[in-house]
């Protein structure tokens, strides 16, 4: 399945066209079927179904409040900590039901890493920020191995050269862009399979943003990346697949080049060309 066009209410679209099928060799990593999400009585996500491919970058776009962040957070069950939140439908990761009984949420989150919109380094040293995930999950056996993993992660997040001489200084002294890359390093340290990024560059200047985008491009060799973004140019630049959300529904999902050049939905076209949203 390369495209998944949801039936839409008549108000959204009267004509539903299938996207151009393109051969996809990468296996499906995350399979979402008919997912609904509720904050108390309010339904925030309405019947989302999509298949996210391994080692690809999938971008979620859509106006504020359309549910893209909420959907992202259902993938590592980050919404579990919100009181009154409720999910139905299924999320299958590598064939395992993420919401099944007997699923260890802690181990799920270890394998599905997350980077947040606002960089949130812990008020500790740079080294300790990266080492934290290793420590709490007991992933290293010696101090030397710990130092090795920290360096490896900082290198992978393209921040090593900037911080190698001040690993034991406070992470809060770093610039916004550096803090965000540190948070990426922190997420990579525990070697997740999937990396969720919730508007990781929205608070950064263009140069820092470019560095994050280059990083995303490099990281997809090793990780499956899902990135929420407000910025359509960014989605077009970094992603292989794009999903467009509108009012809690998945309007259109397909290869990024097709979504931006030949969207099947009028609404998608209006959004990506800036006529609405």
């Amino acid at each position: 399945m390369t495209t998944d066009v949801r039936p839409l209410p008549p108000t959204l679209s009267s004509v539903v066209r299938a996207g151009t099928p393109v051969a996809e060799t990468a296996p499906v990593k995350i399979d979402v079927r008919n997912l609904n999400f509720y904050y108390g009585q309010k339904r925030a996500l309405d019947g989302i179904s999509m298949a996210i491919h391994a080692n690809r970058v999938t971008a979620f776009i859509g106006p504020s409040g359309c549910g893209k962040s909420t959907f992202l957070r259902t993938l590592n069950r980050m919404n579990d900590i919100i009181p009154g939140a409720r999910v139905d439908g299924s999320v299958t990761i590598d064939g395992h039901d993420a919401y099944g009984s007997g699923v260890d949420v802690v181990s799920l989150r270890r394998q599905v890493g997350m980077v947040f919109q606002k960089s949130n380094p812990f008020p500790k040293s740079i080294f300790e920020n990266v080492a934290y995930g290793l420590r709490i999950n007991n992933l290293t056996r010696s101090k030397a191995e710990m130092a090795e993993r920290v360096e490896e992660s900082l290198r992978a997040a393209a921040i090593w050269d900037e911080v190698k001489d001040r690993l034991h200084e406070s992470a809060l002294a770093l610039s916004g862009g550096q803090q965000q890359r540190l948070c990426i390093a922190r997420a990579l340290a525990i070697r997740p399979d999937i990396l969720l990024m919730d508007e990781p560059a929205s608070a950064l200047d263009p140069i820092a943003t470019q560095r994050i985008e280059e990083l995303v491009y490099d990281l997809k060799k090793a990780y499956t990346i899902v990135i929420v973004t407000h910025n359509m140019q960014q989605a077009a630049r970094v992603s292989d697949y794009t999903a467009f959300f509108w009012l809690g529904r998945l309007v259109e999902y397909g290869r990024t080049d097709r979504i931006f050049t030949a969207p099947a939905e009028k609404l998608t076209e209006d959004y990506v060309t800036g006529r609405c949203g």
């Binding site: 802690v106 989150r109 949130n120 934290y132 995930g133 999950n137 922190r186 997420a187």
Partner: peptide, 21 residues
């Protein structure tokens, strides 16, 4: 701030680890 708690949970920390560390 809740961002600190979320950051910790997202790294696979348990509730107690998040509170303690």
């Amino acid at each position: 701030p809740s961002s600190i708690r979320e950051g910790s949970y997202a790294l696979g920390a348990t509730k107690w680890q998040t509170i303690w560390h």
